[in-house]
């Protein structure tokens, strides 16, 4: 299992901030995971169907969406950051 965490409008649309899912097969990327989650429909489809608007982190480090998830423990999906 891995943990997926969501922030900002991704979290709001999906309706929860965290969930556990089966560990993706070797070679599966963050983009693949996003596409897979989007097929759940509803809030998932709403915010995950346009990956260009999303950013990601693996084990608390920013990564490009084509990064392989591998043996990571936590994947985070969120909009571009707006701190400062």
């Amino acid at each position: 299992m891995i943990t997926i965490v969501y922030f900002a409008w991704v979290r709001e649309s999906i309706g929860h901030d965290e969930e556990r899912v089966e560990r993706p097969a070797p070679g599966v990327t963050v983009a693949d995971l996003i596409a897979q989650l989007a097929t759940r429909g509803g809030g998932y489809a709403q915010v995950l169907s346009d990956p260009a608007k999303l950013r990601a982190a693996i084990d608390q480090r920013f990564v490009p969406l084509d990064t392989v998830i591998g043996d990571a423990k936590e994947v985070a999906l969120f909009p571009p950051v707006t701190g400062g």
């Binding site: 922030f7 900002a8 982190a57 920013f62 985070a76 969120f78 909009p79 950051v81 707006t82 701190g83 400062g84």
Partner: peptide, 11 residues
């Protein structure tokens, strides 16, 4: 500048 573009905050 880096806090704005590289720290995980959302407003």
């Amino acid at each position: 500048d880096w806090l704005k573009s590289d720290a995980p905050f959302w407003k």
